[in-house]
Amino acid sequence: MRYWRKPLDADEIEVPRGDIHIVESQCKGCGFCVEYCPRDVLELASGYNLKGYHPAVVVNEAECVNCQLCEIICPEFSIFVRLKNNQPVCATDIDLRKGVDIIES
């Protein structure tokens, strides 16, 4: 990530990382998640799923910051992201999805 000026606490902040789940059989290959993922984590597969669509696939999981935009823009409820296991939760994660239990142990 590029900063206009390096935040003073940049070394202390742990960037949240996401664990991406794709329900391949449910995906209709609309490409919404691919287009709007801010970190270019996703792509459409060249192969087909059972229904004949090119499903979304993860190509760059290490870049995922758990923003969950892919999850909320997906019209098929076929992609969702959880905070990577054992990562401490920072306040922004909770704010993103108030009232939703986003942490899995």
Partner: peptide, 12 residues
């Protein structure tokens, strides 16, 4: 699921 809406439909 999968629901009846077309690929790329905004309803979902």
């Amino acid at each position: 699921m999968p629901h009846i809406w077309c690929p790329g439909c905004g309803i979902g």
